[in-house]
Write a protein that binds this DNA or RNA. Structure first.
Lengths: 235, 235
DNA sequence: CGTCTATTTGAGATGCGTCAACCGTTGTGG
DNA sequence: CCACAACGGTTGACGCATCTCAAATAGACG
C-alpha cells in the first residue's frame, strides 16, 4: 500500500521552481525574512476555530494536521515537514488543528501581506493554486489508501512514503526516523495503535524491516515491501 | 456520520460571487460561451493518463471522480454536480478518472485559454486557488469519515450531505434522487455494496428513511439521522 | 418473454478493534 | 543515586463489524 501522509498536507510549494517567476521569488524572499516562531513538541501552531491570521512554512521539525470528531475520534490528514506550507486555504477560521510533533521552527507570514502580494503579482495566486492542488492530490492518495487498503498495506505505504521522501532529498531511502508516535500513525491511517504496532512487528518478523528503536526504521527488503504495497501513491 | 462526497470534488467555484471581481466574471462568461460536450452515462470525461487539455464545468448531470489500484480496487474521491468544475490541478496528465454517472452536459474550456486568462488577470489565479482549497476541505472531511466512522455513520453522513445540498438550493431537504449506484456509494465510503445496501435497509426499518425506489430517498426523521451522524462534515 | 444488471438478503469467515496486562524509557524528586 | 510515576509501545485474548461468497429478487430493455 502506497505512501500516506509523509508529506500530505504540505509539500505545498515554495520549492525553488526552475526559472521561477518574480512572484515565487518574492514569496520565498518574503518568507525568508518573515518572523520566526519556535514551538515545542505538542504545542499548537493553530487550532480549530482560531482566526486565520498567518500562513506558516516549516523550517525545521514536523507538524501534524488533524481534525477531531465531537466524541474525540481523530483523523490526521497530513504531516508538514521542512519546506511545507501550512494554513493555506482556510477562510476566516481554521477548520483543523496544527500541532507540532517535535520542536519546530516556523516562518510566519501575515495573511494581509500575502493578500497584498497577490494583488501586486498575478502569478502568486497561480502559485498558491498549484500548491494547494498538490496537497489535494496527496490527500486523495491517502483517501485511496484508508478507503481501500488493508492494515498491512497501509503501514507499508506509510513507510515507503518516507523512503521516497529520503530518495528525493538524496538521503538513505532505507533508514529514517519516524517523528510521530504510533497514535499519530494510527489516526493518520485509520487504524488503532495496537494494529499499527502489530503490523510493525509482523514486518520485522518477516525480515522486511528492522526497528533498532521504536521510532527508527531500517528497511532491509525494499522490493518485498513494494510488492506488499500494491501501488505507488505517496502521502 | 456527516456528509460525504455529494459535492466533494467539485463545488470548486464559479458560483456567482457577490461583488464578483472582473476575473470571476470573465471565467464565468468564458465558460458560458465555451464549447458544450454531451456524455452518456458511464462515458468517460477523461481517464487516468490522459493529457490535461481542458477544464470542465458540469452543466447538467453528474460525474464520478475516482482512482483505481492495480488490482481493481476503486476509490471514488468525489462526485461533480451542476456548477462544479473538474479537471483542475492536474499537471500534464490526469491522475484520476472522471466518468459520467448519468447523461451529462459539460462546458469545456481549453487549458490554454485558462492560462491566458490567468496571465491577464491577477485575480483569476486566486480564484482558482480558492476553488481548489474548497475541494481540499471536502476531501479532508471525506477522509475523516472513511478513516474514523462506522458503516452506519458513513451512510448517514452521505445522505445528510444530499439533504444539505438541497437545502442550499432551496429544494426539499428530505427528498432526493441518488444519481449513483450502490457500487459508487460503496467505493466512495470505503465499504462494500452489501454493507451499503444493508445499511439502507436498516435505516428504513428504523423508520428514518423511505426508499420508494432504490435510487430515491425520502428522509422521515431528519433529527434522528443527524443524531446518528455524530458530526457536521459535508462531502 | 427472456436476458442483463442492480439490489437485496442470507450465512459464514475474518481482519481489525477492544480490553487488558506488561515492558521499557524518561524524568523527577526524595 | 535510586525509586517511582508517567508515557509510549508491545503483546495477548476475545468479540464483533464488516467482508466474502452465494443465491434470490426486482427492474430495465429489447
Amino acid at each position: 500500500m502506497p505512501a500516506l501522509s509523509t508529506a500530505s498536507q504540505p509539500r505545498l510549494a515554495l520549492q525553488p521552481v526552475v526559472g521561477s517567476a518574480p512572484s515565487s521569488q518574492d514569496l520565498e524572499a518574503r518568507l525568508a525574512q518573515a518572523s520566526l516562531r519556535r514551538v515545542e513538541a505538542k504545542e499548537f501552531v493553530f487550532a480549530e476555530g482560531d482566526p486565520t491570521t498567518h500562513i506558516f512554512q516549516v523550517e525545521t521539525g514536523a507538524v501534524a494536521l488533524y481534525k477531531v470528531l465531537s466524541d474525540g475520534r481523530r483523523q490526521v490528514v497530513g504531516f508538514a515537514y521542512p519546506g511545507d506550507l501550512i494554513g493555506l486555504g482556510a477562510e476566516g477560521e481554521h477548520v483543523m488543528n496544527a500541532q507540532a510533533i517535535k520542536p519546530t521552527r516556523l516562518r510566519c507570514l501575515p495573511l494581509a501581506a500575502l493578500n497584498q502580494m497577490a494583488r501586486q503579482d498575478a502569478r502568486l495566486g497561480f502559485k498558491l493554486y498549484e500548491a494547494v492542488a498538490r496537497e489535494l492530490a496527496t490527500t486523495r492518495d491517502l483517501l485511496l489508501t484508508t478507503g481501500q487498503r488493508s492494515a498491512t498495506e497501509r503501514v507499508v505505504a506509510f513507510l515507503l512514503a518516507f523512503s521516497r521522501r529520503n530518495e528525493r532529498t538524496a538521503k538513505d531511502p532505507c533508514a529514517f526516523d519516524l517523528p510521530m508516535t504510533r497514535a499519530d500513525i494510527a489516526d493518520f491511517l485509520g487504524l488503532t495503535i495496537e494494529t499499527v504496532s502489530r503490523t510493525f512487528t509482523k514486518l520485522r518478523v518477516m525480515g522486511l524491516i528492522e526497528l533498532p528503536q521504536s521510532n527508527h526504521v531500517q528497511i532491509t527488503d525494499l522490493e518485498a515491501l513494494e510488492a506488499l504495497a500494491g501501488g505507488e501513491e505517496d502521502f
